[in-house]
Write a protein that binds this DNA or RNA. Structure first.
Lengths: 64, 64
DNA sequence: GCAAATTGCAATATATAGTTGACAGTTAGT
DNA sequence: ACTAACTGTCAACTATATATTGCAATTTGC
């Protein structure tokens, strides 16, 4: 399941995958894999992404 | 940082660490380590725990 | 006080999250 | 058409989440 909400939040902030990756301290590939739904990220990484995108866990990672 | 919210939600449901572990498909130790703040769990595990405890990600894992 | 259930804490082993580097495809700008 | 920025993907590697086993410490009910 692709994470379209995360991608939209990133684009909304006008950040590339690489820029977001740098601000949360991971590599570009990791961000790409999370957005494409091929990774099961760690909680800490999810939180870092949320803060970088001014969102909460429920906003980006909670379904239903 | 100990996850006191998760522990309270579990006790509220009258579940032992072992019972919760079984329902989410991990071992008792994993639950214990997450509650004591020594683990950085995966997103999928967080979601499974939330559903088992009738909570959301923000309820149990979001600070601030 | 005793016994059972629960939890904390090690050591070691395995699965998988995340890294690194490289290359191809796409899109936007000139 | 050319370039540059962005993204997808692959292979091999490293770091760490999670499993497994066992034992000690604590709580709770009898």
């Amino acid at each position: 399941m692709k994470n379209i909400k995360m991608k939209m939040a990133r684009v909304e902030k006008d950040l590339s995958q690489e820029e977001l990756a740098k601000t949360v301290g991971v590599t570009r590939q990791t961000i790409g894999l999370i957005e494409s739904g091929k990774y099961n990220p760690s909680l800490n990484l999810c939180i870092a992404i949320c803060k970088a995108l001014s969102k909460t866990l429920n906003d980006l990672f909670w379904e239903e």
